[in-house]
Design a protein around this nucleic acid. Structure first.
Lengths: 110, 110
DNA sequence: GAATTATGCAACTTTTTAGTTGCCAATATG
DNA sequence: CATATTGGCAACTAAAAAGTTGCATAATTC
């Protein structure tokens, strides 16, 4: 048991969370390490605060951000671990492809 | 102009295409380099051929597979380039995080 | 304590996605 | 040529996602 409760290590779930422009831009805002409130995260967008909140919940469900209520605001922080899992997954698929390429090369050059 | 017509270099589009278990398993079947027909790709699944076809179209829209009609069958092939783009994107976000960590460390140790 | 700020919760609408069924066209094959 | 195989197209349903509005509540600030 290496994974915490609801943090999705499932690649599809992580990719699904990343598969939305709004959520990617939220992640980028948080990726410099500073924890930001929902109000600040909503500031630049054309969406309502509630829409942003929903996106944050999706990111949180995928384990890509964490939240903590401080006073009257909810501060969201970047959680980089699932990104590493996603990268590892992509590398594994790419590696399989590279192996296939290698075998093809061997076959052709034989 | 480095990108062809509709092949999405857009990270969100690539991640969205990857964000589905069925599509990931299709990609995995193709990632060994062998081109497969829709019939063969549908074989293992519980889905109808048309459902699989739709997923293949999504993958093709993201540039992750290519198709070619040979005789009476449509052969789909893995196209690894967008995976590289996705990995690069994840690395850029991770790098920003690592930079932030480094600055924090500097600050704490000062 | 009254007004303001930041957020949560719930109901609702709209849009997109996933999946199915039915039918037709093209290519093989006996 | 008769028949099976392979797949495309279109219409349709069902379910999930995205987004909004309205209202209630907790923490601040003046």
């Amino acid at each position: 048991m290496s994974k915490a409760r609801d943090e999705a290590a499932d690649p599809a779930a992580i990719f699904a969370a990343l598969g939305d422009g709004t959520r990617l831009s939220l992640l980028e805002k948080l990726s410099d390490g500073e924890a930001l409130s929902i109000a600040k995260l909503s500031a630049g967008t054309r969406l309502t605060r509630q829409a942003v909140t929903k996106h944050l919940h999706v990111l949180e469900g995928a384990g890509l951000v964490t939240s903590a209520r401080i006073g009257r605001e909810s501060l969201y922080s970047f959680a980089p671990a699932p990104l590493g899992a996603a990268r590892t997954y992509l590398e594994s698929v790419s590696a399989q492809w590279d192996d296939a390429l290698g075998r093809l090369k061997d076959f052709v050059e034989r």
